[in-house]
């Protein structure tokens, strides 16, 4: 599934140019440390337009990204800025951490790392926007995002969050890995934590003072999402019990973390024994989940592929069916 191919091209070009000329014809002019050419990068990866390979994906999924979104500002709660008001409203919180990316600085010029990080980030942002996510904060090449809002049901928000997390994990596990392995770089991987806080669990309000402020959530479940991300395996996703509860049809994809670790103490991510409150964390089998999506096909070798909306004659050649089809020699006797 080459939906990120256009996002990988700038990374490949930056890596190819790194340390050879000290001037990056594609992304920098003159002194690389001081004159990083954002314009060239934006031409290769426009901020507010999906690159064609990802656009095909959005088309197959049947969703359109909202590029009017601003960082750190969930539009449904932006009015709380500079007020003393608060609101209680459910939200799905997600922390995406890209691990081992620091090693890039030991290998490449800062300008190259800039291009790599931007490409990874833009792939993440664009994918999140397709699934209706709100990017609350960028952290290096990782991010903190919300899913849901006043015009979306909890179930839809949960489903979209899981879809984003799955598609992005696939990107890092397969596509990015391939690029970096060719460079002899150790595997870079994601760890993702996702949790849902219901209306009564989440307070939306302004944090900070004056201009040093943001509208954010005060919720145990936002904090737990961050903690669960740290409990995920490489390219793994850990979700909170509320997510499992709202995804009734997806039960086969969840298993308590303690079954993986073999330690019963890992079953709960948070406990208040006096209140009898115990909150379970679960591993999420995102690849299995992804393979069941309507927009995904599994090919003859078990790899996932995009089910495009166009007729196959538009993009495929029937000669490529022949190596598989030729094994068939049908008969008829009914």
């Amino acid at each position: 599934m080459n939906i990120y191919e256009d996002y990988l091209q700038p990374i490949r070009k930056a890596i190819a140019a790194d340390g050879q000329t000290r001037t990056y014809s594609e992304f920098a002019g003159g002194n690389v440390r001081n004159k990083i050419n954002l314009r060239a990068l934006n031409e290769a990866m426009p901020e507010k337009r999906l690159l064609p390979s990802l656009e095909q994906f959005a088309d197959a999924v049947g969703l359109k990204p909202d590029f009017t979104q601003k960082l750190g500002s969930h539009p449904d709660f932006a009015h709380l800025k500079h007020t003393e008001d608060t609101e209680e409203h459910y939200i799905v919180s997600m922390f995406v951490d890209v691990r081992r990316s620091t090693q890039l600085y030991g290998r490449y010029e800062p300008a190259t790392v800039f291009v790599i990080n931007n490409a990874i980030q833009r792939a993440a942002i664009h994918t999140a926007l397709i699934f209706g996510g709100y990017i609350h904060r960028l952290q290096g090449d990782g991010l903190f995002a919300y899913f849901g809002g006043k015009n979306m049901s909890i179930k839809d928000a949960v489903n979209r969050a899981l879809q984003f997390a799955s598609v992005y994990s696939y990107f890092v596990k397969h596509d990015l890995k391939e690029v970096f392995e060719q460079q002899g770089i150790e595997q870079i991987y994601t760890r993702i934590g996702v949790d849902l806080g219901y209306d009564e669990d989440v307070v939306w309000a302004m944090a900070g003072i004056g201009e040093i402020s943001e509208v954010t959530t005060f919720s145990l479940h936002t904090n737990l999402a961050s903690k669960m991300q740290a409990n995920a395996v490489s390219n793994g996703i850990v979700i909170g019990d509320h997510i499992k509860k709202e995804a009734a049809l997806l039960q086969e994809f969840f298993t308590p973390v303690c079954l993986r670790t073999g330690k019963e103490t890992d079953r709960y991510i948070f406990e208040i024994p006096k209140k009898g409150f115990r909150y379970t964390q679960h591993d999420f089998d995102w690849l299995k989940f992804l393979k069941k999506q309507d927009y995904i096909a599994t090919d003859f070798s078990g790899n996932i592929q995009l089910k495009r909306k166009q007729a196959p004659a538009v993009y495929a050649n029937s000669n490529n069916l022949a190596p598989i089809a030729v094994k068939s020699k049908p008969y008829y006797d009914f």
């Binding site: 096909a297 599994t298 090919d299 003859f300 070798s301 790899n303 592929q305 995009l306 089910k307 495009r308 196959p312 993009y315 495929a316 050649n317 029937s318 490529n320 069916l321 022949a322 190596p323 598989i324």
Partner: peptide
Amino acid sequence: LDICDATGLYWDT
């Protein structure tokens, strides 16, 4: 049953 060709491109279900 999704069918893809030898290059992985999807054809039909």
